[in-house]
Each structure stands twice: as C-alpha cells, then as structure tokens.
C-alpha cells in the first residue's frame, strides 16, 4: 500500500491545474457552485491528497486514514475534483455535480461521496467535528492526523472559537487547521465585513502553534503541513494567504465570482488560461 508518493512539484502543479479545469467544467455544466473559493483552496487540497495525507482511494473508509474536513463546505467542487483526480471515484461522475440524484452534492455529504469524511455546508461546524475526530484518534491510540480547511469569513462564527479553545485545551497535536485566507467573503472584503485581524495573534492567544504561508506555493504548503505534524502538545494552524479565483485572471480577487457560474464562453476562456499556465 502506498502511503505517500514521491512526486515532483511540477506534477502537483499539473494536478492542481487539471483539477481547476474540472472545477470550471463542473460549475459551468451545472450552472451552480462556488468558483472563487474553490480555486483559492485548490493547491492546498492537492498538497494534502497527493503528498501529505495517508489515504487509500480503494478504501475510503479505511480506519487508519488521515482525515480531512472541508469546513468551508461550499468549496465542494474543489474537493470533488481532487478526489476524482486521486481516484476515489471516476472522473466522469464530476459532470453529475449538483444534479438531482447525484452523489456530488452542492455542499459535501459524507454519506454520498467516497472520500468525504464529514458533511458540511453551514459555516463554522467543521473544526468542531475535526477536533472530535482528532480526540477520537487520541482516545483510540491511532496515529492518524486530522486536517480541517476553514474559510476566512468563517472565523466570524463563534463556534469556531469554541473549537479553537477546546483543541488547545485538549492538546490535540494531531490536528491541523488551514485557513484559506483569500480576504473575500460573500458580501465583500473580510476586513470590511467583520475584521478578523490580528489573525495570528488570535490563534496564539487561544494556544495554537501558528504558521503563515503562501497558499499557492506548493513547497511552502507541504513544508508547513509537515512541520505541523512534528509539533507536540498543541494543534497547528496554517494561515494560507490565497487569491480568490486563483488561476483565472478575470476571476481573481473579484467578490462577484464567489458563487457566480461562468457562461460557456467564460469557461472556455478560463480553460484556455489554465492550459497555458
């Protein structure tokens, strides 16, 4: 069983471009889905599933697997594209996204999609569930790690801080939270809606080990995830600075592309840009 593959950064970058292309196709086909936040977290997901996490696509419910919780459940398309790329289900299924009866729901559903470890969609829930998994791992003396990907706007939910406090209190060093810090939420800039800064200071004041990376630099992402795994007695948060809509020039840093499906023409333009990248 292969736990991790030695792969070049180039390969990972290719995977993430391919996954981004699939995101475009899915969303355009379904005329639904959250494109901006899916593109911003893509490199993180690829790093997790292709390099860092111990998973076996043939056994999505394998007990000793590392877990991943997509707390920003609206980025489902990104996770689906990566899971399909990794072989959890056939890539042709991607085009069923958001159709009635599909196993690819608008927000991720663990009962329907192989490889999805937790159902999410309403913001603020994921870190609690991830902390529960991490705690379960500790109780059962298992060595798996739990990763949770949170949106930045999501940090406005009080439940997140309940979980942050808890994970530190319980010394859950098998838990890594990653923040997709793309600076935009549904309605505008996070800093204008409800400022979450000073972000690192908040997590430090709540007892977490903190790191800050460029969320589109594959080497930095992987390095930080590895370092997180070595930290003892406290959970780690990686604040990943990202660009909403990353990879498609006309979507980058644009609030309106939070959940707007592209037209077929826009999709073609995006696919072309991604091919050239």
């Amino acid at each position: 069983m292969e736990l991790s593959r030695a792969v070049s950064m180039d390969y990972l970058r290719e995977v993430s471009i391919e996954a981004r292309r699939n995101v475009m196709k899915m969303i355009t086909h379904a005329q639904a889905g959250h494109v901006g936040g899916a593109l911003s977290c893509m490199d993180i997901l690829v790093a997790l599933y292709f390099e860092v996490m111990r998973v076996d696509p043939a056994r999505p419910r394998w007990e000793d697997r590392d877990r991943f919780v997509l707390s920003k459940g609206h980025a489902s398309v990104a996770l689906y594209a990566v899971l399909a790329e990794r072989g959890f289900f056939p890539k042709r299924d991607l085009m069923t996204f958001d159709q009635i009866g599909s196993r690819l729901q608008g927000h991720v559903d663990m009962t329907k999609t192989p490889g999805v470890d937790m159902s999410t969609g309403s913001l603020g829930h994921g870190l609690s569930a991830a902390a529960g998994m991490a705690l379960g791992g500790k109780l059962a003396s298992k060595d798996f790690r739990v990763h949770a990907l949170l949106g930045d706007g999501e940090l406005q939910e009080g439940q997140v801080w309940e979980a942050v406090m808890f994970a530190a209190g319980r010394r859950l060093d098998n838990l890594t939270a990653i923040i997709d810090y793309n600076k935009l939420q549904l309605y505008g800039a996070v800093a204008e809606m409800l400022p979450i800064e000073p972000l690192l200071m908040k997590w430090q004041a709540f007892g977490w080990h903190t790191m800050e990376v460029d969320g589109h630099d594959m080497a930095q992402i992987i390095g930080s995830l590895r370092r997180a795994a070595m930290e003892k007695d406290r959970p780690t948060v990686i604040v990943a600075h990202t660009v909403k809509g990353k990879g498609v020039s006309f979507m980058e840093r644009k609030v309106e592309w939070h959940a707007k499906p592209p037209t077929h023409k826009e999709c073609e333009r995006a696919l072309a840009e991604l091919r050239e990248a």
Partner: peptide, 10 residues
C-alpha cells in the same frame, strides 16, 4: 427548498 442547488445544509 428555494436554495435547491445550494445543497442540503442550505
């Protein structure tokens, strides 16, 4: 169910 495509949580 007006957010039909939005997913079950919505």
């Amino acid at each position: 169910l007006v957010m039909g495509e939005g997913g079950v949580t919505h």
